[in-house]
């Protein structure tokens, strides 16, 4: 009997995740009722396309958060990779080369962050405050503060390609989510990412190469942000110097709502995906309903504090209950 209950447990979702799914579903239902345009194919497609690059950044941030760090360069890495791609296009490079250039940029950025965190032992938050400042400046310098356009038509058209009626970019997001999910659950390295975030000393003593894991996570974050940069240029057809300026904090919020913790060791890719989905559906809904879109920002702040606050309150309550039980006994 015990065996059965154990096997079944595999499929059980954490309560916070159920709450998040429920929240999204209610949001969908509510908005479909309130706004006739919400549940149209067109609106859904544009919603999916618009969230695609930020979803990639959220995945990047989630990996770093699980590992016990923070990466504030996801926005500027996205902007710089997109810029490099655009500049390669300008000199007539083949699209494959341009995209590769963007991806290499992301990897270089991730390696730089990894170096600062692993070898110079700088706290990842402050290290990426520094690199973010540098990268953003490099973007401004390369673009001279102006918008870079001139991406090839066929390239930009990818943004409106649909696969089985679903925008290609969003399909790619889902593909990446599945790959990353399996990476985190089904590989030794992925499990090590959690272990290092939960207790780096324990991971070290258990034979995990913690430095390599940290490096890997930052490089992966850079690479995913670069893919986000490619998505961005496909979607917009241009590169704006301020692209992704607020993204780092936005995606941290999304990941935390999705169950990650700034203390590391927790979080999931699909949780984060639901987090960013909730954010975009909210924005979209508020737009359609003619609300001031900034209500969404306020709401997000409140949701963030209450979700994280509620989970720590739960712990406090549990402890005081336990001690009260002790007294009664």
């Amino acid at each position: 009997m015990e065996g059965i209950s154990l096997e079944r447990r595999k499929f059980r979702l954490p309560i916070s995740m159920v709450g998040l799914i429920l929240f999204n579903v209610l949001l969908f239902i509510g908005l479909s009722i309130l706004s006739p345009t919400f549940l149209t194919l067109r609106n859904m497609r544009s919603l999916m396309v618009r969230m695609s690059e930020l979803a990639m950044l959220t995945f990047a941030q989630t990996l770093v958060l699980i590992n016990g760090g923070m990466d504030l360069t996801v926005g500027s890495a996205m902007a710089l990779s997109g810029t490099i791609a655009g500049m390669l296009f300008k000199v007539g490079a083949h699209p494959v080369i341009a995209v590769l250039g963007a991806l290499v940029t992301g990897i270089v950025i991730g390696t730089l962050n990894g170096f600062l965190v692993v070898h110079l032992k700088i706290d990842s938050f402050i290290a990426t405050v520094a690199t973010n400042s540098i990268l953003r400046s490099v973007v401004y310098l390369l673009l001279r503060g102006r918008v870079l356009s001139g991406f090839p038509k066929n390239y930009v058209l990818l943004g409106s390609v649909n696969l089985l009626g679903i925008p290609l970019l969003f399909v790619l997001v889902i593909v990446f989510a599945i790959i990353l999910h399996f990476f985190l659950r089904k590989t030794a390295l992925g499990r090590s990412v959690y272990a290092v975030g939960a207790n780096i000393n324990c991971a070290h003593i258990s034979g995990i190469d913690t430095n390599f894991v940290k490096y890997f996570v930052f490089v992966a974050s850079g690479l995913l942000s670069a893919i986000g940069g490619v998505f961005y240029t496909i979607r917009i057809g241009a590169m704006i110097p301020d692209a992704g300026l607020n993204s780092p904090l936005e995606v941290v919020t999304a990941a935390l709502i999705g169950g990650a913790s700034v203390k590391g060791g927790k979080g999931s890719i699909f949780g984060s995906l639901l987090g960013i989905l909730a954010m975009y559906v909210l924005i979209n809904g508020f737009n359609l309903l003619g609300f001031n879109p900034f209500w969404e920002v306020v709401l997000l702040g409140i949701v963030l504090i209450t979700i994280v606050g509620q989970s720590s309150m739960k712990k406090v309550v549990k402890m005081s209950r336990a001690s009260r039980r002790g007294r009664a006994a």
């Binding site: 938050f125 904090l249 941290v252 919020t253 935390l256 700034v262 203390k263 920002v297 306020v298 997000l300 702040g301 409140i302 963030l304 504090i305 994280v308 606050g309 720590s312 309150m313 406090v316």
Partner: peptide, 15 residues
Amino acid sequence: LKVPAIIVTLGTMNI
């Protein structure tokens, strides 16, 4: 709430 300051102030920044 005993929530880390970075989260609280990230939240209130948005608010």
